[in-house]
Design a protein around this nucleic acid. Sequence first.
DNA 1: CGTCCTTTTGATTAAAATGTTCAAAACTGT
DNA 2: ACAGTTTTGAACATTTTAATCAAAAGGACG
Lengths: 200, 200
Amino acid sequence: MQVKSESVNKKDQNRENILKIAREIFSKYGFKKTTLDDIASAVRKGKSSLYYYFKSKEDLFHAVIMKEVEILAYELEIVINRNTDPVDKLRDYILTKLATFRGLANFYHAIENDVTAVGFIEEIKIRYEQDEIRMIKRILIEGVRKNEFEIYDFNLAAIGITTAIKGLEMPLTAGTYGEVNLERTVDIILKIMCYGIMKR
Amino acid sequence: MQVKSESVNKKDQNRENILKIAREIFSKYGFKKTTLDDIASAVRKGKSSLYYYFKSKEDLFHAVIMKEVEILAYELEIVINRNTDPVDKLRDYILTKLATFRGLANFYHAIENDVTAVGFIEEIKIRYEQDEIRMIKRILIEGVRKNEFEIYDFNLAAIGITTAIKGLEMPLTAGTYGEVNLERTVDIILKIMCYGIMKR
DNA sequence: CGTCCTTTTGATTAAAATGTTCAAAACTGT
DNA sequence: ACAGTTTTGAACATTTTAATCAAAAGGACG
């Protein structure tokens, strides 16, 4: 009998490799234009071999996106745990998320409406909204503890900021390709959020 | 009766527009992955409308490539007529051609062998080889006139150099994607050619 | 070698996509 | 209303493509 852990390792290794290559191809051509043959021949396997690792094209795509999201989560975790000024932290958080999202958007940068892909990404957005609010809240609480922010309702504030970030993501996932200079826009929004619009 | 010249203009205008957009899409996805629907919806027309302007997908692709070649020819003409040192002119000629070719290569940067596209481009290469030899010859003759080159058989020299350029194009049209630093390679080859050629 | 498990594959199929044709419609200027 | 131009939707034949499956190949181990 083969040792389970070894064979699992081998399989997982193959799976990872397929994911890595599939990621490249999906990000280049989008979900619809990428065929299983493209991926299979890129990993030098028969097309049917892919079904040993993933139960469908959608499944594979889903796995690719999920991995991307994991990476994003990991990067955000790092940003959050850095010992920086709360405002900078907020800024870094937003910029990191946007950068990764710009990449994610590639996955369905197709001309036609790639319904499946859009569906996946929308689904992910919804699923992770709660996490996002929680993270933002942590930043806000830290800001108050450091005596930099003055916030009365953390939940509302976090929801507000999360919503603002969603607004920033829009031009990425929608078709607005004209370089909007995101960094500048982020700074402007940050300024508004930090100093408020009221004269004092 | 409508005035012929007007209607022709309108049609040509539309044709040009289709070509422009088709160029973008072909260069992004390659010949095979680009569908007529992609192009049609990008120009906001029905798919069948395209057949009013081009008799087939191949025909359209062909037209796109031809336009690209025209542009290349135009740019090369400019380089050749610039009043520069013959060696620089040779260098500029090669670099200009390679730059455009790098773009051309995009048109069939597909994973699979895009036989049709490859065929077209090979055909063009062959057709324009004679022109190329002629242009190179002009540069060489000018170089001798300016007392910088010392060449006894212009034809042979031009053919040799053209062949060398072909060698430089190979990594572009073949699958060699690993950045080969073309500019450096060009300089090296130029150096070899020059010190074999230059009067001393 | 034979056994058991893992992994790969070619053949097959059903469904969807795609290039192409064509006759009819829409549009345009006179 | 007319004539020429341009657009289009429906229809079709052909390929492509995702998915399935049973069989084969590979590999560890007694």
